[in-house]
């Protein structure tokens, strides 16, 4: 195997980690609340701006990141209360479109505030050399934190009372009322966690990419695709799909170009939707 290909594979793996984290957040929301937040990637973008501006204002990176995660988590709750809750009983497609309106809003509002410039946080992290392979430390860091985030979510869902309730509600929504559960509260908690994961994603991405208001348009569709491929609401499926898609993009990018790799990934997605409509890991 040649060394550049190996590098591409490793980079794909590292990218997959961050995508997996975001797919987990989106899937959690879908599984529990049964709505698709089409503006999820735009929440990530907000998180990136938050880190960027706080860091520029002199905050240390860790503090800026924590603040961004908290901020986007609150934003997630607001999204639920202001936009999702009123359309909870509307047809699913209206729910999707309501968050589509949010997409417009967030993109234009950030344009209004920050302009359309591409902004780089300017934190220079070292490049790690392993033999002949070069790996950016920022990516490694992002991958590490993404895994930490994913594991933390797993432990929360598996081990805590609230986590178990969240898994239960995604298996049978209606009956939860009979358990004495006020679904609205669970929805709020879920939106909070989904927002926090988007915020974390933002912190990790801002180290690698420039931020601009329309960033969500580039990788937003990618995240939905991953979620659908894994089976909407199926977290493990989404996790696996993240790494498949990121490898396609990374290896495809190595052989042809990233854009063609995207074409390939989306085409594959369409085909798989017809072959395995409930996701690659569907039972």
């Amino acid at each position: 195997m040649d060394i550049y290909l190996l590098e591409a594979v490793i980079n794909g793996l590292l990218l997959g980690g961050v995508l997996a984290l975001l797919a987990l957040g989106l899937n959690l929301i879908f599984g529990v609340i049964d709505v698709v937040w089409i503006a999820y990637a735009d929440l990530v973008m907000c998180g990136m701006y938050a880190v960027y501006w706080l860091h520029v204002a002199g905050w240390p990176l860790w503090a800026a990141s924590l603040a961004a995660i908290a901020g986007v988590a609150v934003l997630g709750v607001l999204v639920h209360v202001l936009i999702i809750a009123p359309v909870l009983r509307a047809p699913p497609i209206n729910q999707l479109l309501a968050t589509g309106g949010l997409l417009f809003f967030l993109q234009s509002f950030t344009t209004l505030l920050f302009g359309t410039d591409f902004r780089n946080i300017g934190v220079r992290l070292p490049i790690i050399e392993m033999g002949d392979i070069f790996i950016s430390f920022a990516r490694l860091l992002a991958f590490g934190f993404a895994l930490v985030g994913a594991v933390a979510l797993y432990v929360f869902l598996k081990r805590t009372y609230l986590g178990v309730a969240i898994r239960a509600i995604s298996q049978d929504r209606e009956i939860m009322g009979l358990m004495g559960v006020d679904q609205r509260r669970i929805y709020l908690v879920t939106s909070l966690i989904g927002g926090a994961l988007a915020g974390l994603g933002g912190c990790l991405l801002v180290l690698q990419y420039d931020v601009h208001p329309f960033l969500g348009n580039t990788f937003g569709p990618l995240i939905f695709m991953i979620c659908v491929l894994g089976g909407l609401g199926n977290m493990i499926g989404g996790f696996v799909a993240s790494f498949i898609i990121s490898q396609i993009i990374s290896i495809g990018g190595y052989y042809y170009s990233t854009e063609w790799a995207y074409v390939l990934a989306f085409t594959l997605f369409i085909v798989l939707m017809f072959i395995r409509p409930r996701g690659i890991l569907a039972r």
């Binding site: 178990v164 309730a165 898994r167 239960a168 298996q171 049978d172 358990m179 004495g180 559960v181």
Partner: peptide, 16 residues
Amino acid sequence: FPRLTVEDNLRIGAFI
């Protein structure tokens, strides 16, 4: 809840 254990099912019953 088919994908929860028996014990977790019972636990959820005590939500209030």
